[in-house]
Amino acid sequence: MHTTVSLITDILAAAPPPEPPAAPASLAQVIENIKGWVMGLLAAIATLFLVVGGLRYIAAGGDPAQVEQAKGNFKSACFGYGLAVLSPLILKALQSIVGTGL
């Protein structure tokens, strides 16, 4: 009769070995992946600021301090969307400075 430990050991022994993670094709592919992540992250954060600003503006009830905070959130959202749009150009400039030749 198998105990639980020996049963687990038998299952692990029969399992195929894990495959190593796939290596990136090239440095250009790594930079493209990073660019996609950066653009998505910036757009998500900007959307969060836009939503928070909208909620603050709705909940302000005429309070000038709350309205100013909401406007600040809208400005931050616009800045974030601008960075997300310009991130390919920023990365291209960094590539030319670093000299990766991509």
Rank of each mutant, 00 (worst) to 15 (best):
Y81K: 01
A15M: 14
G61R: 08
T3P: 04
T9Q: 14
I45N: 09
E32A: 14
A46L: 02
A13Q: 10
T47Y: 03
W37K: 06
A77H: 00
P18V: 01
A25K: 11
A22W: 05
V85Q: 07
I97K: 11
L83W: 13
M1P: 01
V51P: 02
L42T: 02
I31S: 10
V67E: 10
L41G: 05
G54S: 05
Q29M: 07
S26K: 05
S87E: 14
S6P: 01
T4F: 12
A46Y: 00
A15L: 14
V98Y: 01
L27Y: 04
L41N: 07
A65P: 01
N33V: 09
P18T: 00
K71G: 01
G54Q: 00
I11T: 11
G53W: 03
I97V: 15
Y81S: 08
A46N: 03
P16H: 00
Y57H: 08
P20F: 00
L102G: 05
K75H: 12
A25D: 15
T100M: 13
A44Q: 10
L94V: 14
P16I: 00
P17M: 13
Q66Y: 03
Q69C: 04
C78K: 07
L55V: 14
V38M: 15
F49E: 03
K92I: 07
V5F: 07
I58A: 14
T4K: 06
G101W: 15
S76M: 10
Q95H: 09
P64C: 04
P20T: 00
F49I: 06
L42K: 02
A65T: 11
P18S: 04
A43P: 02
V38A: 14
T3C: 05
V38G: 01
Y57R: 05
A44E: 13
Q95S: 13
F79Y: 12
A44N: 08
T9M: 09
A60Y: 01
I90P: 00
V5T: 14
V52G: 01
T47N: 09
G62E: 03
L27S: 07
Y57V: 06
E32K: 01
I8H: 08
T100G: 12
L42N: 00
V98E: 07
A59D: 06
I45K: 08
A22M: 11
L89G: 14
V5Q: 12
L50G: 15
A28C: 04
A65M: 09
V98L: 06
V30K: 02
G61D: 10
G61A: 02
A44R: 08
T100E: 13
I11C: 03
P18Q: 02
A77R: 00
A84T: 09
L48N: 04
Q66G: 04
A13K: 05
A43R: 06
Q95T: 10
R56G: 09
S6D: 15
A22T: 15
G72L: 11
E68L: 14
V67G: 04
K92Y: 13
Q69W: 09
Y57A: 14
T3N: 06
D10G: 04
A23K: 10
L86A: 15
A14G: 05
M39P: 00
Q29C: 05
A84N: 06
T9W: 10
T4S: 10
A23S: 11
